[in-house]
């Protein structure tokens, strides 16, 4: 399979700040690739390096095998859906969508026809004459999507495109985006700080931390087998066990991760502690136990008894649920 985007030890330093620091990355053609990380981790800068709004201070970026180090954004065959959508307020929706075709010199009738086609694809056929200010957040998001897709880019870049939408709309858009990507067979590169979004939408994802990639792999790899404590904590909201605790629970003296849904409360066990906090989630209750100073979260399914705050309880898990992460 061809690589749509390749990073060869790419860095982007802003003075002393290493926003992106020696990143190696390969994004397969036709995949839905997510870049996940907390704010300031370098994921957005990586996206801007692909679109050309940032120049690398070191390394090489290739798009479909071609070195784009000296290619300005307007000559790169990639398009971006911006976080704030960046729709042109003085143009109506149709002209916004047709903008890329207009600057390439396509005639008025033809580009408007193409824009209408694309608006139909995102289910906004009747909205061509409106101004962006007259649309809701979800509709603007679709216009931004249509405006990018109408240019038939080789790679579509999405910068936290769902961040401004409410939960219900966000979930609907996640499904739509995923379906659209499958249908078009296009490479999507998606930046998000929402681990659920990344896990549920991506074919593969890179977890960023402090300008570096902490782990890269399929959602299952990353969720089940986090490579570092950071990944375990950030992606799965997993319990991270220090070596002492792992040994006390019958494992080797290594750092380990344990998912809350694989942890259950039990009357007896090698380690017990008081219940520190309870959080009702609807589908269950998250019980946090203070185990020798380490917080261990267990997920109690709905319908099962939940201990009161302050009572002491032990916990248990299948030995295979414990994922070891080395001694460092």
């Amino acid at each position: 399979m061809t690589a749509a985007v390749e990073f060869l030890s790419v860095s982007r330093h802003f003075g002393p700040v290493k926003a992106v620091d020696g990143v190696d990355l390969t994004i397969a053609e036709g995949s839905f690739f997510a870049m996940l990380g907390p704010s300031g981790s370098g994921k957005t800068t990586c996206l801007r390096l692909i679109s050309g709004f940032e120049k690398p201070t070191g390394g090489t970026i290739r798009i479909f095998g071609e070195d784009v180090s000296n290619t300005p954004p307007h000559l790169r065959n990639v398009n971006t859906v911006f976080q704030d959508y960046a729709l042109f307020p003085h143009m109506n929706v149709r002209d916004n969508v047709a903008y890329g075709l207009m600057v390439k010199g396509m005639g008025r009738a033809q580009r408007h026809a193409k824009a209408e086609e694309m608006l139909a694809l995102v289910k906004l056929d009747a909205y061509g004459d409106r101004k962006p200010a007259q649309l809701s957040g979800g509709q603007r998001q679709r216009v931004a999507l249509a405006r990018a897709l109408v240019n038939e880019p080789r790679v579509l870049l999405l910068d936290e495109p769902l961040g401004a939408l409410d939960l219900k709309l966000r979930e609907a858009m996640q499904d739509e985006l995923k379906a659209l990507q499958k249908r078009l067979g296009l490479t999507f590169v998606f930046v998000t700080h929402d681990q659920h979004e990344a896990l549920s939408m991506a074919d593969s994802l890179a977890v960023f931390n402090e300008g570096k990639i902490a782990q890269i792999g399929t959602p299952q790899d990353i969720y089940d087998r986090p490579a570092t404590r950071f990944v375990a904590d950030f992606v799965g909201s997993s319990n991270v066990l220090p070596p002492d605790l792992t040994r006390a629970l019958g494992g080797p003296a290594e750092w380990a991760s344990l998912r809350p849904e694989a942890t259950r409360l039990s009357a007896t066990g090698p380690v017990s502690g008081p219940v520190k906090a309870l959080r009702y989630l609807g589908s269950g209750t998250r019980v946090v136990i203070d185990a020798h100073g380490t917080e261990i979260a267990a997920l109690v399914p709905a319908g099962q008894p939940v201990p009161a705050e302050g009572t002491t309880t032990a916990f248990a898990f299948e030995p295979s649920a414990l994922h070891l992460m080395g001694t460092k």
């Binding site: 709004f53 300005p72 990018a148």
Partner: peptide
């Protein structure tokens, strides 16, 4: 906003086109 100018460049506009149309 800056993103407006970036969006224009992203969609393939040269500096001159961005100046005239945005």
């Amino acid at each position: 906003p800056n993103s407006m100018l970036e969006a224009s460049a992203d969609l393939g506009a040269s500096r001159g086109q961005t100046f005239r149309t945005v």
